[in-house]
Design a binder for these strands. Structure first.
Length: 259
DNA sequence: CGTGTTTGACCAGCGC
DNA sequence: GCGCTGGTCAAACACG
């Protein structure tokens, strides 16, 4: 997750730079900016030059502010990432020996799917999970429940071991989960749920959790990225100063482009 | 020392 | 009955 946050921020900073440079503005709008340029009104010309100078300065300020904002954001995210690394990286849990799933830490995934099939007493479904890292030794699967591994088996039709989990949040909860790598695409983890939870979900924060806590990579990336971008965008658009500065920057950009 | 994980052993179901 | 396979158990082990 932390990598994604950093990547997202870098992307945002890049995009914000490029958007200022590459926004398409029609030429007639630029011409219309300062009034009738065909006139020989010296006063108006001076006024325009002054206006351009002022907008140029504002644009420069805006770029600096944007840069500082992205830097601060990056710093904040790196701090958050380092904190998570320091807490999870000191784990002395046993490392995997001869199985790709031995070191897998599963919190379940696709929480929205966990509530499906709740009408039947013995439900069954398959979740396809894309692990974040391809070295395949570390997964984080979140579905809002706590799971306890009680067995592992290599099945005949799949060279990858199948792990068996029980819901450990409630002792009486009958739900079980089987997790195994897809035989077709080893980058896909297939989780099969059986039964229905008789308790509510366990809310886990990023980097937090039971003893199966890992180094992260927990959120579904596209949704999380979108949320992050939306939040940043909305916070920026709510700022009237930012709006004014952005308008000024656009004006300046169009002026410079068509000089 | 408590808790969770690993992994070999055991059990049940199924096909022959 | 026998062998194969998937699912579960539980002792040993690792870790905090």
């Amino acid at each position: 997750m932390e990598f994604t946050l950093l990547d997202t921020c870098l992307d945002l900073s890049l995009n914000s730079t490029t958007s200022l440079d590459e926004l398409p503005i029609k030429q007639q709008e630029v011409i219309g900016l300062g009034g009738d340029m065909s006139s020989n009104d010296e006063g108006a010309s001076d006024h325009l030059a002054e206006e351009i100078k002022r907008l140029s300065g504002e644009n420069k300020k805006l770029r600096e502010m944007l840069g500082v904002m992205c830097d601060n954001y990056n710093t904040l995210l790196r701090k958050h990432y380092m904190n998570n690394c320091s807490t999870s990286g000191t784990s002395r849990k046993r490392k995997p020996q001869n199985s790709e799933l031995l070191d897998a830490h599963f919190h379940g995934i696709n929480s929205e799917l966990s509530d499906k099939d709740s009408s039947c007493n013995k439900s069954r479904r398959h979740d396809h999970i894309q692990p974040k890292n391809n070295n395949s030794t570390l997964y984080l699967v979140k579905d809002g429940y706590e799971w306890r591994k009680y067995g592992q088996k290599v099945t005949r039709d799949n060279p990858y071991p199948r792990a068996y989990f029980k819901c450990s949040f409630a002792p009486t909860c009958p739900v079980k989960k089987k997790v195994q790598r897809s035989v077709d695409d080893k980058s896909i983890i297939v989780a099969t749920y059986e039964g229905e939870h008789n308790h509510s979900k366990v809310v886990l924060e990023a980097g937090e959790g039971s003893s199966t806590t890992t180094t992260g990579h927990s959120h579904k990336q596209p949704e999380f990225n979108k949320l992050l971008i939306d939040q940043m965008a909305s916070s920026l658009t709510r700022d009237p100063q930012f709006k004014a500065a952005l308008a000024a920057a656009l004006n300046e950009k169009t002026t410079l482009t068509h000089k």
